[in-house]
């Protein structure tokens, strides 16, 4: 009798552990919370935006329990690889350089254009001072373009730099700039041509997390197939936004 009890206890324990590893785990979604409309903190201090809605829907479809955490953009990749959270869902474009360090799911946002915004139409975007957020594809592009790159830790600060004259123009995702330009009441305008950069936006994952990647890939595919992803893109980025 005693042996039987022990055996059941051991069995219960071991299945318990197995469950904990596969299902009991909460997936921690790492985001920046400072890049509207992709992700930002709303008035209540919670993560909100396009990626919040997409992420919650993906977790529901993949039957995962998810939790949102914010992290500085600068250290967002190192903190993923060291395991502080399990995904990066922060408007991060899929690039070859990042692929060397982390993995990406298929994109949940199509390859989008980046654009320059400035205070006047004749701003010198080829040889002047251009602000961009640190470690973004836009910063890389400006550095190669011949203009003087002025880097900032957050998107907010890049726009502020143009407003106070520190930079001639800001270079960022067009979809992030669009509401800023719209609300500025003519103070800011788009300058020059749009520049297509990157391979769209995907969820960043540790290279070793292949199971999680498969789950998210399947969930993204199902959202693409039934059109719900396009609906969210239009809701947050307007009718003119590029969809799948």
């Amino acid at each position: 009798m005693k042996k039987l009890l022990l055996a059941t206890a051991a069995l219960a324990l071991s299945t318990g552990f197995a469950m904990a590893d596969a299902h009991g785990k909460t997936i921690r979604m790492g985001t920046e919370g400072a890049y509207p409309p992709y992700n930002f903190l709303n008035d209540a201090g919670e993560v909100d935006g396009f990626e919040r809605e997409v992420g919650d829907e993906l977790c529901a479809r993949a039957e995962l329990t998810c939790e949102w955490v914010t992290n500085e953009w600068d250290s967002i990749i190192p903190n993923l690889t060291s395991g502080n959270y399990d995904t990066i869902i922060a408007g991060m474009s899929i690039t070859d350089a990042r692929e060397e360090v982390i993995d990406f799911t298929q994109n949940y946002f199509p390859p989008a254009a980046s654009a320059y915004a400035a205070k006047s139409a004749d701003a010198d975007i080829a040889g002047g001072v251009v602000a961009a957020q640190t470690s973004t594809i836009q910063a890389g592009h400006v550095a190669e373009s011949g203009a003087t790159l002025l880097e900032f830790a957050t998107y907010d600060e890049t726009v502020a730099a143009v407003n106070n004259g520190e930079a001639d123009a800001v270079f960022a995702d067009k979809d992030a700039l669009a509401p800023t330009v719209e609300e500025s009441a003519g103070a800011l305008m788009f300058v020059g041509d749009d520049v297509p950069l990157g391979g769209g936006i995907g969820l960043g994952l540790r290279e070793s997390d292949t199971e999680l990647k498969d789950k998210f890939n399947a969930a993204i595919q199902s959202m693409k197939d039934d059109g719900s992803l396009n609906k969210l893109i239009i809701k947050w980025f307007g009718e003119g936004a590029k969809t799948f």
Binding site: G33, A34, P36, P37, F40, L41, N42, D43, D48, G49, T154, D156, E157, V159, A160, N163, P179, T180, E182, E183
Partner: peptide, 12 residues
């Protein structure tokens, strides 16, 4: 820094 940054009416 987060609270002080410019906020557009669409998101707040």
């Amino acid at each position: 820094r987060e609270l002080g940054g410019a906020k557009t009416p669409r998101f707040t």
